[in-house]
Computed example of a mutant assay.
Amino acid sequence: MTEAIEQFFATLPDRAPQVLHAPLTGTLRIDLADDGRTQHWVLRMRQGAVDVDQGPVDADAIWYSSMDLFDRLVTGRAHALAALFRNESTFSGRVVLFLAFRQFFPSPPGTRDPREVAREKVRRAR
């Protein structure tokens, strides 16, 4: 397990109030595979909160990913939905949990809010 992944999971409870705004309740298990071993991360999600645990427990949804892909996701070098579409990962269960969870991933390095870019152009044009 990479340090970036460990840090990502450790920060989820503190970040949940800013990310999980919708009335949401459910358990998402994330299975991370690396060298024939699988680590199971369990996220119990509800509006404004998430509890993080580990273990192969029953869940409302299961997302399977390689450790390498997940490291790229938590560092902003990959996009979760694109990874699913390319069959780099798999998902089963309540899709709303995946859609809510992916909001925790950072934007790619160097990404800027398009509204701020437009404001800068307006300021320079004056």
Rank of each mutant, 00 (worst) to 15 (best):
P56S: 06
E116K: 13
F91N: 01
Y64K: 07
A78I: 01
P17D: 09
E88F: 02
T11N: 15
L32D: 00
A118F: 14
R72T: 04
D31Y: 14
E6F: 03
Q54K: 09
H21A: 14
A22K: 10
L24C: 02
A80I: 02
V42Q: 15
T2G: 08
V19C: 04
R77I: 00
F105V: 07
A125F: 11
L97G: 05
R77Q: 12
G110Q: 02
V117C: 00
R86G: 01
R102P: 01
P13E: 10
R29P: 04
D68P: 00
R77H: 11
T111M: 08
L28R: 01
G48H: 12
G26L: 11
G76C: 13
R102N: 03
I5S: 07
A33T: 08
R44Q: 15
L32C: 01
P109W: 09
R102M: 03
E120D: 07
S92F: 09
E116T: 12
G93A: 07
V96M: 03
E116L: 13
Y64F: 04
R119L: 11
V42N: 13
F98K: 00
A125P: 03
T75E: 05
F105E: 07
H79Q: 13
T27R: 12
Q47S: 15
G48S: 13
R126P: 00
V19S: 05
F91Y: 13
Q7H: 15
D58W: 05
L24A: 02
H21V: 10
A61H: 10
T2Y: 14
V19N: 04
D35A: 15
P106A: 11
F101M: 12
L12F: 06
V122K: 10
D113A: 04
A49F: 10
R44V: 15
R115E: 09
E120A: 06
A83V: 03
A61S: 14
I5A: 04
D35T: 14
G48I: 14
H40F: 10
R37M: 14
L20I: 13
H21G: 13
T2N: 15
A33I: 02
R115A: 09
D34V: 00
V50P: 05
L73S: 01
R77P: 00
S107T: 06
A61D: 09
T27I: 14
T11E: 15
G26D: 11
A125Q: 14
R29I: 04
R46V: 12
G26Y: 07
E3F: 09
Q103W: 00
S66L: 08
T27K: 11
D51N: 04
F70C: 08
L73M: 01
E88Y: 01
F8D: 05
T90F: 08
D53R: 10
H40W: 12
D35M: 13
V50N: 05
L69I: 04
F9K: 04
R112E: 11
K121N: 09
R123A: 12
V74M: 09
V117E: 03
V57F: 14
P109V: 10
R112I: 11
A59I: 05
T2P: 07
T75W: 07
L97N: 10
R46S: 15
